[in-house]
Design a protein around this nucleic acid. Structure first.
Lengths: 340, 340
DNA sequence: TCAAAAACGTAGAACGGTATACGTAGAACA
DNA sequence: TGTTCTACGTATACCGTTCTACGTTTTTGA
């Protein structure tokens, strides 16, 4: 076991070899590497040339021992939801011209796994952490923030001090959805929410939904069902709603791919979308636009969220301590699934 | 900048503190950590207790300097394709009871970015690398394999010696698709393939498609179009096919989400699926099952592929050098999109 | 009963960078 | 002309582990 590892390590160029090649000290090379103070242009050029010639790449582990690893950790709840692809695009754009690299981990939407992933990112000396759709408590997040610069996406905590948050206005997004449905003539509007560890964005969306219903004088029709992200569970919940005594004429779903599944269930039950039941999703992912779905959805500009999160975490790495809470307004994109 | 980093590092428990707490040497603690030879049960228990009491976690960077980091790198081409979620499930299952952790990177399906991601994983001392849907050349892969244990998923190279491969039989998968379409009464069967850097799995699928067409006496109708993964591009290619002079009555698409897009385009053009045009996808991702899609697809057991890849890379880390090529047979799942 | 072997534990040199403390030369200032 | 800065380089301790080499105790075998 050690054998294979040892054999492979050979051939790796070290900072010492670069220093020898350039005829300077190790410290000088390190300075060039870090863009540190006290290097002349001539020396910099000489060192750069040697690095290129030898194909030198600094070892992140070694750097991590005393300085930075130039690695950002990004935790996703789930790989099936294409919304996260949009966020990643934004993150990558923000990092394009920096020397930072992102490594992703999956929390599978459970606090236990999420903690494990985050801990292992801290163990791996990530310089900063971006947490998407976290279900952790304020204290847990503060604990993480004590150790590493932290930014959350999709976690509402406007009074948080130790970490930054990036969000769309989920309450308003839900409100837009309800208003749109009401305007389209629906009145028995239900919401399908997420079951499991309580998440602040779901709380916000539920709040917005309630608000919208009351505003439209439909407070009596408020009806929030919930299901985990497991297929079978969603199908069951959707059937319950659509076959129950208080059958809704519209369902606002907390995320697109759940909405697509609800469309599927409705279709199988012989219900027509949008005539018999209107459906609204959230995130406006690429699948909404497919003709067979044509799903009305709330756009929360995932790419922008990712971009901002990356910007904020790098600012924190560079020393900012004042908290920042970034909120983008959501936008409703109407499609056929609600055009009654 | 250093300030923030320094302030945060404080409080981290080191192996020395554990050793002091347990009243043993640092080396002894390290041995316990690595399950190395020469520790009595009593010592092990004592050390474990101290580790728990102090909340000790070994620092990956420091471990990486001499030994392993217990981190596996996994490179995905794309975050939008839900197929990769299946693979990840398998990988995670395989790693459940080990101390390995996976970190993911995205190659965006370009060799340049892929090289960058892989290099940065090597810099970060990942113990092994799993590459999904790689478009790199044999030499590049060999170069990587020289440095780290490497396993590819979705890359055919049965004569590779330096790294393991895990695949489904793509040629057979395509063959199944064509045979199924022929049996359902389609004859002008086109294939929509992937444009860009040549990929061996696409080559295999095209080969299988050709083979199937010839076998059915339809050699003259062979028609392979291609498009990148960009939405607009796919739509354009689909329209070209469906509005062209040799309009096919069925299209075999290289992956599900492309097929869903083709269904969308066909629908918008007023064509009925499956009556006017039959559609087959590949990967049998969760979206195929939705009633509005009901997409016939080829299942390649993503979860199994992920599981095997993780197993193989760990075996290599543990010293195996003999090459292994794992191939799983694909399975056609018929749905409404081809039931003429 | 004694030598040899096995089991257990320790000391301390790596690993490849970073960053502090310091030396030296030339420029600027009085 | 000396003094004080500033710019540029260097030497080297240090980060938290691993792992080899070695010493000591216990067990085994004849």
């Amino acid at each position: 076991m050690a054998q294979a590892g040892e054999g492979r390590r050979n051939g790796r160029v070290t900072i010492r070899e670069v220093a020898d090649d350039a005829g300077v000290s190790v410290a000088a090379v390190s300075k060039v590497l870090r863009d540190a103070y006290g290097v002349s242009d001539a020396l910099r050029a000489k060192v750069r040339a040697s690095m290129d010639r030898l194909g030198y790449r600094p070892l992140a582990s070694a750097r991590g021992m005393r300085g930075q690893t130039y690695t950002l950790g990004l935790v996703l709840p789930d790989l099936r939801n294409p919304f996260f692809a949009d966020i990643m695009t934004g993150v990558n754009n923000a990092l394009e011209r920096t020397q930072y690299q992102v490594m992703m981990g999956i929390s599978a939407s459970t606090a236990k796994l999420e903690t494990g992933v985050v801990d292992s990112m801290i163990d791996r000396q990530m310089d900063g952490i971006i947490l998407i759709g976290s279900t952790e408590s304020r204290e847990s997040l503060n604990t993480i923030a004590e150790k590493k610069p932290l930014v959350t996406i999709g976690h509402h905590d406007p009074s948080a001090e130790a970490f930054d948050t990036v969000n769309n206005n989920d309450q308003q997004g839900a409100l837009l959805a309800v208003r749109h449905l009401v305007a389209a003539g629906y009145s028995k509007i239900a919401m399908l929410s997420l079951q499991g560890e309580p998440s602040s964005i779901l709380a916000e969306r539920e709040q917005g939904y309630r608000h919208g219903m009351v505003e439209a004088g439909l407070g009596g029709a408020i009806n929030i069902a919930s299901a985990t992200q497991v297929m079978r569970d969603v199908q069951f919940a959707a059937k319950r709603l659509l076959q129950g005594p208080r059958r809704p004429d519209a369902i606002f779903c907390w995320t697109d791919f759940i909405a697509l599944e609800v469309i599927s269930v409705a279709t199988e039950l012989g219900l027509r979308v949008p005539e018999d039941v209107g459906i609204v999703g959230y995130d406006n992912t690429m699948f909404c636009d497919f003709a067979q779905n044509s799903l009305t959805s709330i756009d929360q500009s995932g790419e922008l969220l990712g971009l901002q999160a990356a910007r904020l975490v790098i600012e924190r790495i560079n020393g900012r301590t004042a908290v920042e809470h970034f909120v983008v307004p959501p936008r409703l994109v109407a499609r056929r699934s609600t055009s009654r």
